[in-house]
Amino acid sequence: MKAFSYQRATSPMDAAAKATVTPGARFIAGGTNLLDLMKLEIEAPTHLIDVNGIGLDKIEKTEEGGLRIGALVRNTDLAAHEDVRRDYGLLSRALLAGASGQLRNKATTAGNLLQRTRCPYFYDTQQPCNKRKPGSGCSAIGGVSRQLAVVGASPACIATHPSDMAVALRALDAVVETVDAKGMARAIPIADFHRLPGETPDVETALTPGELITAVTLPKPAGGKHIYHKVRDRASYAFALVSVGAIVQKDGSGRVALGGVAHKPWRVEPADALLRRGAKPVIEHLLADAQPTAENSFKVTLVERTLAAVLAEARA
């Protein structure tokens, strides 16, 4: 871990001011991913601004009947919040399927969204990785790729996004609220928040330099059955091979987003319209452009079967 200087922000305003004037600064909240990566020098900020003391840890109702989730709300608290459990069960379920009790107690809403990939080549600083070191190449292509992306990947990167929470947010049509260093606010639909790798896999989100997440908002409850089905080799404390987040209405309509298949939570809205016809047409649409590796082609079959199970559960 490279040396850095450290400051505690006392308020959001204070944090913004500090970030604006310090090159190489990063904010730290839960730290469960950032410190992990800093120890390996995959991340090497020169300055850390501790934002744990500045608030942004509330969950409030919005005027539109939805919820606004502060950027610093811990995963445990979000999953356990009464309104979330009642109206956005998909989000609770996705959070609870991720990590461990200890990690969820620290990890924040914004930090979870900004998690970086778990591609083992990204994690090994001795190996080429375009995401870690732009232009160095992708050693995962042609390498060990069982966990990696089957769709939306590029010749530069086949990493997946590891978050369960983000899959739920994608299905829930969440909006990421941000401000930039000049105080300009933006509301970024979750669909646009995470990027595909393209030629610049190091650029993972729509955030511009200095732009910061303040909250995630959810539209008013969509009703329906909320199911998050995560598939993994071990029963807990493991990243998804694939996951399916779905909201299914009584009439069989609904929405679906996939985890573990792409560089971002994977949802293609027109595929939702096929839900009443079953899992196969939905997945065929969602993964129409899939280009799996020999090691992960099973994910295409697996995710279809998982969705079929989800739909059966929704009908039951």
């Binding site: 913004a16 904010f27 950027a71 930090g111 930039d180 200095g210 910061l212 997440i213």
Partner: peptide, 8 residues
């Protein structure tokens, strides 16, 4: 205020 959090 233009404040914000996380990963800037």
């Amino acid at each position: 205020a233009g404040a914000g959090v996380i990963a800037a």
